[in-house]
Computed example of a mutant assay.
Amino acid sequence: MDDTSRALIGSARSQPVSEAAAGAILTIDLGAIRENYRRLKARLNGVRCAGVLKADGYGLGAAQVAAALAKEGCDIFFVALLGEGIALRKAIGLRPDIFVLNGLPPGSEAEAAAAALCPVINSIAQLKAWREIARSLGRTLPAAIQVDSGMARLGMAPAEVEAVASEAGTFEGIDIRFVMSHLARADEPQVAANEKQRREFERLRKMLPSALASLANSSGIFLGPAYHYDLARPGAALYGVNPTPKELNPMLPVIRLQAKVAQTREVGAGAGIGYGHAHQADGPLRLATISLGYGDGWHRRAASAAWFEGMRLPFIGRVSMDSIILDISALPAGRLGEGDLVELIGPLQSVDDAAGHAGTIGYEILTSLGARFHRRYVGA
């Protein structure tokens, strides 16, 4: 998704949709986010804990999540893009530190400094540009330095770290708040790659000016104290995604997604159902069409189900842009009607369950949730 698309989505999400006008309702439990933060903090035994709010707080509202986390004492936030940082700064004020994970696009350094943002510097070019803007402003500017310890995504490569370490005045005018890196396989605690990255991180950070260190993401927190350093940076775990796959989720669920029934009908044997008549009825069926589809971020390939009063209502036929057909034959006739709500994510089907049906991960489910929902915040 490009920056323009993200901006359009963010703009749409900022325009509230009334419950009556919406086809679906997304309930976001800020109290659960706060409890998840407390649980992560407890595992860190005094190590500071940031909050990652990229992609509009994983699709749930960066400003609202930041306000909730601030009540728990969180005063360091991470976003991915400069535009996200500027928007968050306007929403939450000047006090918390906001770091921009992807660094700054060339030419945007003055805008970042004006918004009191801290770039995560990923290259020599970004380092030079930030040093130059500090010099032009006549003051020291904060930043984090990211090194690539073995993910090959963002951060200074080892050769770059060696180069800047041997160059006098490289960090003049820059207040290095953290030296950081990112784990590629933290959700696989048994693989050797985690310890290999940790050792490489140790080696690289020792070449740089003395500063606090940060390595652990959500799953990294569960790798143990050796990975905690001075600051942890959880994201998905705050929002209820399981940071320990194949084990019980230690986090509380955060969202509930319910869709309205738009229409019900009965069909006979042989009826073709949905696009391409992907399903043929082999007997009489009662169906309900709900107002939610891939246009709302529910993946077209996600063969799943909805729930009503504890009853599983399987999808039947293909997911459409604005609708999904459910088989409601198991319910008593007339029990489900137009305007009633069925549940797609909640106690009976988690974010991770929905991701499994779509062949993806909970992160993608959350960040795909659409702008047409009525968003209800609870537990504030």
Rank of each mutant, 00 (worst) to 15 (best):
A22H: 14
P332V: 05
Q146Y: 00
E109C: 01
E202W: 14
E364N: 03
A24N: 08
E132I: 13
G138W: 03
I121P: 02
D230T: 05
G73V: 09
G155R: 15
M151R: 09
R375K: 06
G359E: 08
A380W: 01
F171W: 09
A216D: 07
L137Y: 04
P16E: 02
A32G: 06
L257E: 06
M207D: 07
A302P: 00
E160W: 09
K260Y: 02
S291N: 06
L69V: 09
V120C: 06
Y294H: 15
Q258M: 05
R256C: 15
F373G: 03
E188K: 08
L137K: 04
R203M: 05
R38S: 09
S320K: 07
P106I: 06
G283L: 15
E200V: 14
G150D: 10
G46W: 03
M151I: 08
R286T: 01
L285Y: 15
Y377V: 00
Q197C: 04
A114F: 04
Q15W: 10
L88W: 00
G270K: 02
D352L: 08
L223C: 12
H279R: 02
G359P: 10
A66S: 06
Y239S: 08
Y275H: 09
K54G: 11
F201V: 14
K71Y: 06
G272K: 00
R38V: 14
E266R: 13
W307K: 02
E160S: 15
A113V: 13
H277V: 04
S214A: 09
Y37E: 08
A333D: 07
L40I: 13
R256Q: 07
D29W: 10
P106H: 06
T244C: 13
R318P: 00
I124V: 13
